[in-house]
Amino acid sequence: MSYFEVVNPLFGRYVLGNAPVKQIATGFDWVEGPVWFGDAGCLLFSDIPNNRILRWSPGAGVSTFRQPSNFANGNTRDRQGRLVTCEHGTRRVTRTELDGSVTIVADRYRGRRLNSPNDVVVKSDGSIWFSDPHYGIMTDYEGFLAEQELPCHVYRVDPSGEIEVALADFNCPNGLAFSPDETRLYVADTGRMFGSDPQHIRVFNVASSGALSGGEVFHTISPGCADGFRMDSDGNMWSSAADGVHCISPDGHLIGKVLVPELVSNLCFGGHAKHQLFMTATTSVYSITLNRRGAQNP
């Protein structure tokens, strides 16, 4: 059985021919937001409709990390190793402190409630960037049906706590990631729920001040869309897709695929050398060992 589809021979540098795609956990409804905790040797991920964050550990399997999770979606870690989470149910971004207490990072902009924060990344300067589409308030499946009070934007939260709109020209921003040197920011637009808007990944130049410029289309995933993605140490993007995970070169070209039997929602790098790719895919979590390391927070 082949676990790969090679589009460009370059892809052979990044995969191991005898490394299988493994289903490491299953039985969920819609899993998202994987994040690796190397110091704890575990993966956290969200089972959104069941209102919980789960923990997977090699040898120990799956256990509950937090329930209720306020319909948590995207997760990441900051430079201090703290969990940062997007919550649909409370329409906010939170940080779990090292003592277990929870701090609200953002829940409003200019007095209006956020929609349903979806995905989040932390820059090396401590700023927190997150997407805020409306998906979690359009039905009761992944949150609570509610009125939309703000457009769908990408926000930046300064280390001081000040929140500002970083990007305002998206239909529904979703996955986002910085290049390894943080000079580029990639943001997916996955279109409005019940709509047929364009679905693609855009790329922005990042100035030392954090100001963004550019915004041209970087790549369009097919089949499916770029719900979530992460970068490797060479600057390649590994993105979710309907048929698995697509590997996209720094110049925006598809070079290969990791084939997964379910629709992939998101992914992260982890394992002892950050060379294991963990993929949340509809009802299950999968993993594969690659020949490159991830370029992401610890």
Rank of each mutant, 00 (worst) to 15 (best):
S209K: 04
D227C: 02
N297L: 15
V206F: 08
G17M: 09
G270M: 13
N51H: 02
G27H: 03
L16N: 15
N8F: 14
H275C: 14
V35W: 04
R79F: 07
S209F: 09
F278N: 08
D132P: 00
A106V: 08
C86K: 07
S124P: 11
P173Y: 03
S101P: 03
A166Q: 04
Y155I: 06
S127C: 08
I104V: 12
V62P: 00
C247G: 09
P117D: 00
N50V: 01
D197Q: 06
Q80T: 12
G38H: 09
P49T: 02
V285I: 06
W238Q: 09
L43M: 02
R92S: 10
N8V: 09
V31M: 00
V31S: 01
P298V: 05
G89W: 14
P20I: 03
G270L: 05
I288R: 00
R108P: 13
C225S: 15
A19H: 14
R77F: 11
G12T: 12
R55L: 07
R52Y: 06
V217G: 14
E97K: 10
G270V: 03
N115W: 03
R66G: 04
A168E: 14
I248N: 02
R66C: 14
Y3E: 11
L277R: 11
V6W: 04
G143E: 07
